[in-house]
Amino acid sequence: MKPAKFEYVLPSTVGAAVAALVASKGEGKVLAGGQSLLPLLNFRMARPAVLVDLNAISGLSYIEERSDRIAIGALTRHRELEQSPLIAAKLPVMAAAMRHVAHLAIRNRGTIGGSLSHADPAAELPMLSVFYDATISVQGPDGRRTIAAEEFFVDALTNCLEPEEIVVEIEFPILQHDGWAFEEVARRFGDFALASIAVSVRPGPAGLKEARVALMGVADTPLRLREAEQELIAMELDNRTPQRFSEIVVSKVSPNDDLHASGEYRKHLLAQLSKRALQTALAAKG
């Protein structure tokens, strides 16, 4: 299980990295933390002619507060997000989810830019980017552009990037929420999610003023359930709300069967998690 032959370049600027991708004529692949790419190389499922290693580029790893947003550099490791007091204070749902991201050794190497680019539908960071309505900045031969997270994920393991584009930064708006919850079930702690939901709520004079719901592990991409959010806002709050909410959430998805879980079981899990998550979020809103 050895990778096929490739050329290795170690640029020191994003511009040089993009130039290397351009020079590879579509045969290049970006290496960040390598936690998903290296197994693919070793299985020879990915066979890039050129491997462009971003790890020598300085200034791509940071977590910064910019008025109402948190900006995160693409090379920021999962472990840094997990341990960041800023993330804990401003993006609590992310802070709660990060401990579910794989295992410590993987979190030490894996990067946010890599995780988003890999676009695994059962991975936490893609789901969080959708949940928070993050903006993904990418750099290509024509300069920078930004992409809304919901536009970024096209299919399982497929993003909307052009072959010469590299994710450089992700901006997460700081959500005004009063109650939130993150729930995940995986076979073992750190495994890919069988089902997961993030919920946040802001109470209004009657019922909820705002609600946000995102899922992973139950479709080909992470999902933001905008319809379910509206239905939840429209609901009168009583002790049956979590049950009704969970029925709405489940009605929005039709997960496939795979080796680890049938679609029916995933729906069952999602129903349980949705109920629990909304209960937690509503309880926290006071």
Binding site: R187, R188, F189, D191, F192, L259, H260
Partner: peptide, 24 residues
């Protein structure tokens, strides 16, 4: 170890062949 009806091994990696780890 899950083999399909054509005799192909579906759980050939440690992502798909799940073993107990310390917490289990």
């Amino acid at each position: 170890l899950i083999y399909d009806d054509d005799g192909q091994l579906l759980s050939a990696s440690l992502v798909d062949y799940v073993i107990p780890s310390a917490p289990e």
